[in-house]
């Protein structure tokens, strides 16, 4: 339950605010997830580009092993995204999994959270399979090669932009209750007693 607040009263009973209706916002998490899916589909890094990257940078004798791992990632994406969402969504999911795991040896807490945030609940075995396959693929390439590939997506997201206020010294200190040293004895009836204001 919301705590009683002065500003809550002012929002409700004064005429100086925009009266917001929050009742329609109950499904905002679902809307947000679908927006993220849309963004994922628009990413510059596509599944086809990952396949081309593998083709261009590996010997043919390594192709068979790597192709098997690529298929594993795509299969895992199908399990996580859901086959009913179509090939485009599955491939975008596979790109997301590749980006998430390309520097990871195992599925950690952060990766689990990231996948869940994007797709909702998912089978952990699929995530583990995708992680292992991505790790095997990544081991064929240098750090520079992988960075160049992944940056295709990050440049579009503007991660290199200047962050407003990055140099501002911010304090987390907040107004707190004063420390009261004096507590009256419970049940004391002396209304004239002076209570110290020096806390």
């Amino acid at each position: 339950m919301a705590l009683p607040r002065l500003t809550g009263t002012l929002r409700s009973f004064s005429n100086v605010t925009k009266h917001e209706d929050y009742s329609e916002e109950l499904a905002d998490l679902r809307t947000k997830r679908s927006k993220l899916h849309e963004q994922l589909l628009k990413s510059d890094l596509t599944w086809k580009k990952i396949i081309k990257f593998v083709d261009d940078n590996l010997d043919k004798k390594e192709h068979q092993t790597v192709n098997g791992d690529l298929k594993t990632i795509l299969q895992a994406a199908k399990q996580i995204v859901g086959a009913e969402n179509g090939q485009e969504a599955i491939e975008s999911g596979a790109v997301f999994l590749f980006k998430t795991f390309h520097r990871k040896e195992c599925v950690g807490h952060d990766e689990t959270k990231a996948i869940k945030q994007m797709f909702g609940p998912f089978p952990s075995s699929s995530a583990t399979a995708a992680c292992n396959a991505t790790y095997r693929i990544a081991s064929h390439f240098t750090e520079e090669q992988l960075t160049a590939l992944i940056q295709m997506a990050e440049e579009q997201n503007g991660d290199n932009r200047v962050f407003f206020g990055k140099n501002i010294v911010f304090s987390f200190d907040m107004h707190d209750l004063d420390h009261s040293e004096e507590l009256p004895v419970n049940g004391e009836a002396d209304a004239q007693k002076i209570i110290s204001l020096d806390y």
Binding site: L177, D178, S180, N186, G187, A191, I195, Y199
Partner: peptide
């Protein structure tokens, strides 16, 4: 308010301490 807080019987004394702290803080 202070009189009411002081006179009331509390099962949990921390509730009394918290109310007293808040009323003292509000005064200040």
């Amino acid at each position: 308010l202070e009189s009411a807080i002081k006179k009331r019987h509390y099962e949990d004394n921390s509730v009394f301490a918290d109310l007293w702290r808040r009323i003292s803080h509000s005064r200040k």
